[in-house]
Design a binder for these strands. Structure first.
Lengths: 340, 340
DNA sequence: TTGTACGCGTTATCAA
DNA sequence: TTGATAACGCGTACAA
């Protein structure tokens, strides 16, 4: 080594300490440091203490990329949603983030913009970067989902596909409560506002409502499909009135609120002339006048459990099995006795 | 190698193709493949075509961890928020995610749970995993933020700190509009409901309201600080009434909605006896009756621009400078002429 | 219990 | 223009 010219500083030294620095300071071999850091107990107490001390003094942080290379695990999980705009996913994100952080995992959020092909490409892009996926509101068909699941750990939320870990709340209970509530109020004909045609959830909700209504001996009619938006809900007001139903249940709260507002704007009293109910109990469902009656989905818990289950699968453990999360009826002001 | 017992399948072969596979198939050296893939043009057209072809056939996806190791860049950006629960951040997340995806970056969301020390620890944990941070609603003090910024690229949202890239919308214009709107309606005394004591934004908003009021020759009084929640807003109803202000502007929409509901519940007509306005125009601000008048912050655009600026800084380019994003008054039903 | 040596997939620095 | 070859930081058989 001879003369060195004054190089321009190599850009803000990436001055992070490595296990080599620790090794040197603690007077041991780097591999010993690695052992002490990854699973304490494999080295003598004394050296472990020295190593930990040195690590702390140097402010050591493991380099995740370097760690991922030999192990193949990135300790990163991805949450895929169809539409970040959708308030339903906010709560799922919240739960997912919390349990990822609790497990020492990093959570990546990605959006498929309601498009199946976009979803595939996102999945593909993220595949080498993460240890697994939580698919919330996937727009892929069952076969495509199974294929993803055969490549990488996957947990499905709000949908059931054979051979894939799925997390679906037991909304039947909440729906039964809702239908009973409406029947008790005196309603004899309930309209269900369908969500998007491809929505697995919407189809299940309709079936459950139909069954619950049949059991109660009242009528249920299906209207739609429609966009799961304020406008999508508002757009169905005419159809609801034509159906002569006295109560309308929408695929989700956003549609329900759209319908509620359209009704109010049209001079139709809620719940006086029309009762309205939704699903999910999203943020803002209690902002309306009257406040919205809704079947609350345990969204935050769903996000939490999904990520926990995914962590288990990634770690090659059996995910805990619990009872499906219950959905519950929240009665607020938008449902009441029908006009007669 | 002698006899091998029937091992359980070596767990779903991590069968991803590498540049070595491509190299072999294309009959070139791995380093050539790397060149062709990272910045086309450094190899002959012919071999580049062969390499691309082989890559496509093998379904090659670069391994981000392996790529990050020598380069030190992960092509991952972090968005830190104080509270995922806060609807304001939903829109920021949305914008951030979109421009991250557009730039080929992966976005990590992390939450500091309204705690400065938690924020530091999250920052610290994420530091080696990302190329930079967007800090939205940081709870750190200026000095701490500068220190982070000296270690890693940082873009600040909704706050200004010397020497750190900051993105703050020009809410003065919207506030001036709001105050003018109220003054024109006949209000002579406006109450401002402060947010959290440490909130940089809340302090700026109060100053702007005070100044705008002074300019209009009307009074402004400060109430609080308070929690930026529904309850936090509701809790101030008494103080608002005592202040004898005829209009109340809250630090944000959530507080405003809390106040609005508390007023309505207490039989105080909005806007008949009390006008209420908020900030941000969050999801649900138009669910209330009356709908909430508010100063709309360009949250989605803020998230977008923040991530774009961060990408520029990471790439060692000068971030684009635009005019600060404008905030605008959205007049809805919750403001009206004061009772006399 | 600890050290040696190699590999993970890629980029980058040399030569050729 | 391309091919060797050395990092990058860490985990881990294997040997001591």
């Amino acid at each position: 080594m001879s003369l060195e010219a004054a190089e321009p500083l190599p850009r803000k030294r990436r001055g992070r300490a490595t296990i080599y620095d620790i090794a040197q300071r603690a007077g041991v071999n780097p591999s010993t440091v690695s052992r002490a850091l990854t699973r304490p107990g494999r080295v003598s107490e004394e050296t472990e203490a020295r190593i930990m001390q040195a690590a702390k003094e140097l402010g050591y942080r493991a380099n995740p990329a370097a760690r991922a290379l030999p192990t193949g695990r990135t300790r990163t999980l991805a949450l895929l949603v169809a539409d970040i705009t959708n308030p339903v996913v906010f709560d799922i994100i919240r739960g997912a983030e919390r349990s990822a952080a609790a497990g020492g995992y990093t959570l990546v959020i990605a959006e498929s913009q309601e498009s199946g092909t976009e979803e595939s490409s996102v999945l593909d892009r993220l595949l080498p970067a993460v240890d697994g996926f939580v698919l919330a509101m996937s727009r892929l068909d069952d076969e495509a989902i199974r294929e993803v699941a055969s490549t990488s750990p996957v947990v499905l939320v709000n949908r059931r596909v054979d051979c894939v870990e799925s997390l679906v709340p037991a909304f039947e209970a909440g729906i039964a409560e809702l239908v009973a509530h409406l029947a008790d109020l005196g309603h004899r004909r309930i309209a269900y506002l369908d969500g998007p045609a491809q929505s697995w959830t919407s189809a299940r909700r309709w079936e459950a409502i139909r069954d619950a209504a049949a059991e109660r001996g009242i009528e249920a009619v299906e209207i739609g499909p429609g966009e799961p938006t304020l406008d999508g809900g508002a757009a169905q007001l005419g159809a609801v009135l034509e159906s002569e139903a006295t109560a309308a249940v929408a695929y989700n709260d956003v549609m329900a609120i759209g319908l509620l507002r359209a009704a109010t704007a049209a001079g139709i009293a809620v719940p006086g002339r029309l009762s309205v109910a939704g699903f999910d109990d999203i943020f803002g469902a209690d902002f309306t006048t009257p406040q919205l009656t809704t079947v609350k989905a345990p969204l935050t818990e769903l996000g939490e459990q999904a990520v926990r289950a995914l962590q288990a699968i990634v770690a090659d453990e059996e995910p805990e099995r619990h009872e499906p999360l219950p959905s519950t009826l929240i009665v607020r002001g938008s449902t009441g006795a029908p006009a007669r």
